[in-house]
Design a protein around this nucleic acid. Structure first.
Lengths: 314, 314
DNA sequence: GAGCACCATGCTCATGTGAGCAAGTTCTGT
DNA sequence: ACAGAACTTGCTCACATGAGCATGGTGCTC
């Protein structure tokens, strides 16, 4: 496109998009035929001079969703728009809302839903609307008797999702990570715990998030791991954790011993699931999101535009 | 619009603008009639959920231009878009380019063009293309034998505009502001100066900028005024200067004595002009831009989107 | 609970728009 | 300078779209 046409295409775009003139009127205005106007507008779009954004907290990016499905083999993807987002927290809320929307939109509603816990899951529970399902029971899929500042959030999350979905919650009464392998095996052998784990393995759908392998991790907060543990895991290739299990970029367990002391569903269980919804957003979680998708740990990814872009670029 | 329709309108907008589906296809997709889709799209636009921006250094805002003409009585207005602008300097360059474009687009080209000088005028001269006019002579309209760090820019500006327009430049060989009234009258009585001033008064068009009344003023830089002078002028109501003459928000001369020591066209001369193009942009110049427009000192205003908005709000 | 006003819906029809084609124009290589 | 290629232009025609209207449903008033 030469310089004259470039300028003309800008004038045409202004008159078309801002002044709402018809292409015929624009032609009269700029002394060109209406066909030329149409072509200039096409060019303006192609050259990227025209940017159209959907500004809404529930706006999504269907293009990226389609590419994630097609190029990354996901059964489904939900990518929320970043347009108009002012803070990182606002973005997290958008993603949580989108995950809640997706969950509520599942047909048929899952009879039993396995959930993890954490900040993201708590947000999702909050955004779910009452009556999102007629009868969905909820079961925790990883341990987490909380030692953190906000005790009981793990339980509150599961209970809230169940209550709003007309079902009951089965909590996993166990720490996330135990100090001794033997203790972990003993606790899993406990009748109550075993029953919950069985229920978790037979859930019709899963909903979970993932954590980055950094010092801000909820496992450090909760006292299950020290910052030194995290450093050691990172040195061994860890990019983050899924249901408490730390994996590397290829989705492999980084520390077999640590893994053997972690209570909850195994990664295999997740990989076999028909519906496994992962809600992972934000720049710090790019690496773990990528690992989760690459190793087939989820069938559905709910994320933000930037993270999606990153997954597709890499 | 109820909540359901709001969400639907967002989905429809995504499919329409991002996926390029027809309204019929969207209807099939969302299980609604194509007429409903059309209405949802209209609503999405009305509610401001759809933002369309023209991203280009020469993009303008015709809506604001029209409002400036209609509501502020300007013969014409050029408002450059702020979309995609990263720095204040980039915006100034856009405005300078737009002023150059407007000048070059005048039909017939002015036979004699009166110009002021300063940073903005220098930029405009730079952006003018060679041969912008067949034969336009340029005459300086205010004094400015420069004492600043970049001597000769005032002269270079006028000469450059004239050369590129196939004409000659008449420089005003006088300081902008003199210390004694008598000296100013003596210099204006000088044959050469008087001839240039006569030519300036008979110019067929004028092009000038304006300065804010602050310590960064080019008059302080050049040594014609001290920061104390500026403070005194501001205290007396000055919002800025046009061709060296300080005015208040109502366009009135703030200091009659200072004005009597200032060499160049009077404000009356400008107000009587058929074509007086003012290029004024940037937040610090909002007040002076407003004063210039309100008091009819220009027939054409070239400015940026934010300044235009401010003029229309006030 | 009857009557009325208002609004959403589905439709017709005129207008707006883009794909595709043929003719004209401008480049390019020899 | 000329032939051919590549591109641009004006056009036809089919499709997409918005304005305007009749209908039916909803909610409000008394």
């Amino acid at each position: 496109m030469d310089a004259v046409d470039e300028l003309l295409s800008i004038r045409a775009a202004e008159l078309y998009y801002e002044e709402n003139l018809t292409q015929e009127e624009i032609g009269r205005n700029l002394q060109i035929t209406r066909w030329k106007v149409g072509r200039l507008l096409t060019q303006a779009k192609e050259e990227g001079f025209v940017r159209i954004e959907i500004l809404h907290s529930r706006a999504r990016r269907p293009q990226l969703e389609r590419r994630l499905r097609d190029e990354r083999g996901l059964a489904d993807a939900v990518v929320v728009s970043r347009a108009g987002v002012r803070s990182e927290d606002e973005l997290q809320q958008r993603v949580a809302q989108a995950a809640a929307d997706h969950l509520a939109g599942l047909r048929p509603s899952p009879r039993v839903l396995g959930v993890s816990w954490g900040r993201t899951l708590s947000d999702i529970a909050h955004h779910l609307r009452d009556g999102w399902s007629q009868a969905t029971d909820v079961v925790q899929i990883n341990g987490g008797v909380s030692m953190s500042q906000r005790p009981g959030t793990a339980a509150a999350t599961a209970v809230s999702i169940a209550q709003k979905g007309g079902g009951t919650a089965a909590l996993l009464p166990s720490p996330a990570i135990l100090e001794q392998r033997a203790t972990k095996e003993a606790i899993e052998a406990d009748r109550v715990v075993a029953r919950v784990l069985d229920a978790a393995r037979s859930a019709s759908a899963y909903l979970f998030s993932a954590g980055a392998a950094d010092h801000g991790s909820v496992h450090v907060d909760s006292g299950y791991l020290t910052t030194a543990d995290i450093d050691r895991l990172v040195a061994a290739g860890a990019v983050g954790d899924v249901v408490g299990r730390y994996i590397d970029a290829g989705g492999r367990i980084v520390d077999a011993d640590l893994d053997a002391r972690t209570v909850g569903l195994s990664l295999d269980d997740l990989q076999r699931a028909d519906i496994a919804i992962a809600a992972i957003a934000g720049a710090p979680k790019r690496a773990i999101a990528s690992a989760v998708v690459a190793s087939g740990l989820c069938t559905v990814l709910v994320t933000d535009e930037s993270t999606a872009q990153h997954l597709l670029d890499g």
